[in-house]
């Protein structure tokens, strides 16, 4: 086991660093909210102390990562289909954005089509009916049976 020293693409080190930043944020928020006194703790009391605990834990992780070999950031994604994951994430964000604007049906049917075709393409003869049938069925169950209102969007469909 070779000593790795300070390596900039050490994933563990980055993890520790990000956590450390978060803990500083939590600690500062706790301080701003007010610690109160020990016999009547304020709103920030718990957060302040949690920030300190988290800071300590993240520092230990960072130090450990320098002492021993951690995986590099690149190796975590090596040999994976990260592009496909990215497609799903981006599609999903666009979907959430379109959800209230276009309404449930007009946004969900295209979502299903994209997911079914863009990742590991499903035959059109299956993909098409499925992307229409599934959202319609769900729409019917929610809207009619359970009386949960789904967004109708600017065209007021669905």
């Amino acid at each position: 086991m070779k000593s790795s020293g300070l390596r900039i693409n050490n994933a563990e080190l980055w993890g520790g660093a990000i956590w450390f930043a978060i803990s500083l944020f939590v600690l500062e928020q706790g301080r701003q909210l007010g610690l109160g006194s020990i016999n009547s703790p304020g709103m920030g009391f718990m957060m302040f102390w949690l920030g300190i605990v988290m800071g300590g834990l993240s520092l230990i992780i960072a130090v450990q990562s320098i002492q021993s070999e951690g995986p590099s950031v690149r190796s975590l994604w090596a040999g994976t289909r990260w592009a496909k994951t990215l497609i799903v994430i981006v599609t999903f964000i666009i979907y959430a954005f379109a959800f209230t604007r276009l309404g449930f049906l007009l946004s969900t049917i295209p979502l299903m089509l994209v997911l079914l075709r863009a990742i590991d393409p499903v035959r059109w003869t299956i993909a098409l009916p499925l992307s229409f049938a599934a959202p319609l069925l769900i729409w019917w169950v929610l809207e009619r049976v359970l009386q949960i209102q789904l967004p109708t969007g600017m065209f007021e469909i669905g």
Partner: peptide, 20 residues
């Protein structure tokens, strides 16, 4: 069900659960 059909259904399921 093959996973390429199953996963869009799972995602749809999560959307519905959250919204409901």
């Amino acid at each position: 069900l093959p996973y390429n059909i199953l996963f869009p259904m799972i995602l749809l399921f999560t959307v519905i659960g959250v919204f409901a």
